[in-house]
């Protein structure tokens, strides 16, 4: 049986996957889109987010005090972080599989999010990690040198 916290985690996870697809579509980060069509990405994302909330609120009493089974603010924040983080991981894995063949123009190796604009996430991440593995001394000099 799902507990309140599990329900909340699942609600955030599903809604966040939807919201991320909307954001990646508007932000033109094609390497992280699961569906290429903007209508499907945005419409599907919105539908997913709305469905998550409808499911959450229609499957039980949600206005419960924390000492009666609800979540206090800190636990809520923690589970939100877990849910959103899981959504990011799920999106990256699925988008990397769906966009396996995507290899657009090579962005600079420390381009960050812009590197995923036209490239598969797994490839962009590998390039970025390899760049940082070789250059971490020069890149962190400003923060840690005396």
């Amino acid at each position: 049986m799902f507990t309140f916290a599990t329900d909340y985690y699942l609600c955030v996870l599903i809604a966040a996957i939807g919201v991320l697809q909307i954001a990646f579509s508007i932000g033109k980060i094609r390497g992280l889109l699961i569906f290429k069509s903007p209508i499907i990405a945005r419409g599907g994302g919105l539908a997913l987010a709305v469905a998550a909330f409808i499911w959450f609120f229609s499957t039980g009493t949600r206005n419960i005090n924390d000492y009666e089974g609800g979540l206090d603010a800190n636990t809520q924040a923690l589970f939100f972080f877990f849910g959103a983080f899981s959504a990011v991981v799920v999106t990256f894995v699925v988008a990397s599989i769906v966009n396996y063949r995507m290899a657009g123009p090579t962005a600079s190796r420390d381009a960050g999010l812009d590197a995923v604009r036209d490239t598969n996430y797994a490839k962009a991440l590998a390039r970025s990690l390899s760049y940082w593995w070789k250059n971490w001394r020069t890149q962190t000099k400003d923060y840690f040198s005396g």
Partner: peptide, 11 residues
């Protein structure tokens, strides 16, 4: 609810 608007704003 503690969950609808706060979570929506966080998302």
């Amino acid at each position: 609810s503690d969950y609808l608007i706060p979570v929506t704003l966080a998302l």
